[in-house]
């Protein structure tokens, strides 16, 4: 692998290399600029921002906006900060990601190794769910959640995310398992392992790369989701994204831009951390199987 990576680099001259590096640095700075502005302004007292210069470095750096955003900012009617909503998001995203990834793996296993008549149709329909615009399903889903007694609750929100996550997680695992040698499953059958044992002992242990891809994808989507959160969460289960919106959009009092910036960074932090920790597996997993060896 490492040999192949090295040999894909093309030799360039000194001038060419300088040009490439300059362009890369320029674009890196360009992309980092918004984040930089957010960080800088989240460390300023409010008068420094309202004074006019967004780009200036803080004169008197302070962590007060962060503290306020986390624990005292006025959101809705209560001055709780983002803390409880952050917890809501965690309570929502962890089970939703775990369940949808698990079901995706199971679906992929069945659709590749235990094929049944019509398996193509089932997979096609699951894929279809990836492309449904979510606005279409809001009202029927609201009705269904109501009928199930899950309206406005955390389990209801988790259910919605699981249902709409299965399409993508199945797609990932099915394509990964399609390249997995069927002879292994047959060997395990002869060895006496049943459906779930083969899944648990043979398939899952080698699913690391695709599981990471799936988890990152699901985590990012579910954490960042606003539409389902604002539609189905109610007051008690409101996730981070909706709370952030409520904080920023509040129509009363002074607009505390520094607190808004800090809150936005807080809201984005978990996905950022997930990417930094597992990002390299993400690329590796997406590439897995595409190149032999």
């Amino acid at each position: 692998m490492s040999v192949a990576t090295q040999s894909t680099a093309v030799r360039t001259g000194r001038a060419g290399r300088a040009l490439i590096v300059t362009v890369l640095i320029f674009f890196a700075l360009f992309y980092l600029l918004p984040l930089g502005v957010m960080v800088i302004n989240s460390l300023k007292p409010l008068p420094e921002i309202t004074g006019g210069n967004m780009m200036a470095l803080p004169q008197e750096p302070t962590l007060e906006p962060w503290r306020s955003a986390w624990s005292t900012a006025q959101i809705g009617v209560q001055a709780t900060g983002l803390k409880p909503y952050f917890l809501n998001s965690i309570l929502m995203v962890v089970p939703a990601v775990a369940i949808s990834t698990m079901l995706g793996a199971l679906n992929g296993y069945v659709l590749t190794k235990w094929r049944f008549p019509g398996h193509r149709w089932v997979f096609g329909l699951l894929l279809f769910s990836c492309f449904i615009p979510f606005q279409i399903v809001l009202i029927p889903m609201a009705r269904l959640l109501g009928l199930m007694g899950l309206a406005g609750s955390l389990p209801g929100l988790i259910l919605v995310h699981v249902v709409y996550g299965i399409g993508f997680s199945t797609l990932y695992f099915r394509n990964y398992y399609a390249a997995f040698p069927t002879e292994l499953v047959r060997a395990a059958m002869i060895d006496g392992a049943g459906f779930f044992r083969i899944f648990w002992r043979i398939m899952l242990p080698v699913s690391g790369p695709i599981a990471v891809v799936c988890i990152i994808w699901q985590f990012t989507n579910i954490w960042n989701d606003f539409l389902f959160g604002v539609s189905f969460a109610g007051l008690d289960a409101m996730p981070m994204t909706v709370a952030l919106n409520n904080l920023v959009q509040s129509s009363t009092g002074v607009r505390e831009y520094n607190v808004h910036f800090a809150a936005a960074i807080l809201a984005a932090l978990p996905t950022l951390i997930v990417y930094i920790v597992a990002g390299r597996y993400f690329v590796r997993g997406l590439m897995a199987g595409s190149v032999k060896g």
Binding site: P181, E183, L184, R186, A187, A188, I190, R201, I202
Partner: peptide
């Protein structure tokens, strides 16, 4: 017991 062409080792 069966020995497979690809060996099929876990």
């Amino acid at each position: 017991a069966m020995v497979f062409q690809s060996y099929a080792l876990y």
